[in-house]
Amino acid sequence: MSKHEKIVETIPVGPLGIIALESSSDLGKKVNEYLVEWRNERESEHKATIAFTGYQRDSYLLNACCPRFGTGEAKGMIKESVRGSDLYLLVDVTNYSLSYTVCGHTNHMSPDDHYQDLKRIIAAVGGKARRITVIMPYLYEGRQHRRTSRESLDCALALQELTHMGVDSIITFDAHDPRVQNAIPLRSLETVAPTYQFIKALLNHVPDIKLDADHMMIISPDEGGMSRAVYYANVMGLDMGMFYKRRDYTKIVNGRNPIVAHEFLGTDVEGKDILIIDDMISSGESILDVATELKRRKANRIFVASTFGLFTNGFEKFDEAYENGLLYRVLTTNLIYQTPELLTKPYYINVDMSKYIALIIDTMNHDNSISGLLNPIARIHNILDKYGQGTHNMQ
């Protein structure tokens, strides 16, 4: 049975509606295009029934906005009916390219601004939707996930606030710490890893790559990303290593304890291609320090795969690292804002996640399980075999 036949075995929860906030407008358009194409091609004997009313449309994007007053205050507006709809809200809380005016001064939108706009749109729905799912690729305040001193637990508070407002489920990608789901134990928080998409992008863009234990190794840049690296290593049958950050806990610089050194644990990397796996590139200093240490140990080409490319300090150091042969390729997704400059970099590989999100939305709208999408081992093994890289361990 094909994927499309399996999906239409069940009745949709409600008419599908997607609200892509301005921060995710480009991603929303791509997701919508996939859904329109699939549903126009899909055949089912039930399509003419009342349960499938509005199933095939020219667009599933709903007209919504958050206009602002001269003071910077705002309101959420939805300009068409959402009654009975199965709504999916897309928001990118890291999109700093957007701005608004406060008493004549230009303000760039912060994560707080985007989160507030998300709440405004949920409030504008007014409880009329059948179900609300928030797709927030970069989890708002996800790095403030635990309390180490007398401090706020912002991520937990945000998750509880959204569920209290009527959000049924939240989908995020590569959460910094998935245990934040403990904040809303009676609601659904799914954290999705783009493992398959990264492997596919590597195979598509680097024809001479060899994904076997003799030629490649997976590296975690810190102890926090160990589980992520172990997963990659196991499904691909590769060795792995890790660095741990030795910090100076007597000081705080830019809100964190400065790193004194990166210590390596693992087997010999000499002559091997290296894939460094991380959830985000913020300033990029840790990644570049790890790459330097790996080159000192005579590693071959170094690839970096990170779900979120924030590049908070710009690209200068990455350009320099590429020119000096320190980095070979950098892969990040289009789940968050990408500057036009980034897309022109010769070392950059853009990993498009729009089809994956469309598949998740399509599956959930039919109330089908997405567990197979969250754990893509079979698809990873299939694409490795397709590219003749099928020496992975089937464990």
Rank of each mutant, 00 (worst) to 15 (best):
Y328P: 10
S283I: 12
T344K: 14
L326Q: 12
N300E: 15
L343K: 13
I302P: 05
R297A: 07
E270V: 02
S282G: 12
E285C: 14
I277Q: 02
N313Y: 15
I349W: 00
L265G: 12
T332V: 14
T267P: 02
T292I: 15
A321V: 05
N300D: 14
K295C: 07
K272Q: 01
D289G: 15
V269K: 01
V269Q: 08
D279P: 01
K272I: 04
S282F: 07
F315T: 06
E293M: 04
L343N: 02
E285M: 13
E316I: 07
A261H: 15
L326H: 08
D319G: 10
T307M: 13
A321P: 14
G284R: 12
Y322T: 01
F303L: 09
L331I: 11
P340H: 09
R301C: 04
K317R: 15
K272D: 13
G266C: 04
D319A: 06
E320S: 12
D279M: 06
L275S: 10
S283G: 11
A299V: 15
S286F: 05
S286E: 15
D289Q: 15
G266K: 01
L327N: 06
I349S: 01
K345W: 00
G266I: 10
S286P: 14
E263N: 14
N350P: 00
R297G: 01
L335C: 03
E320Y: 08
D273E: 12
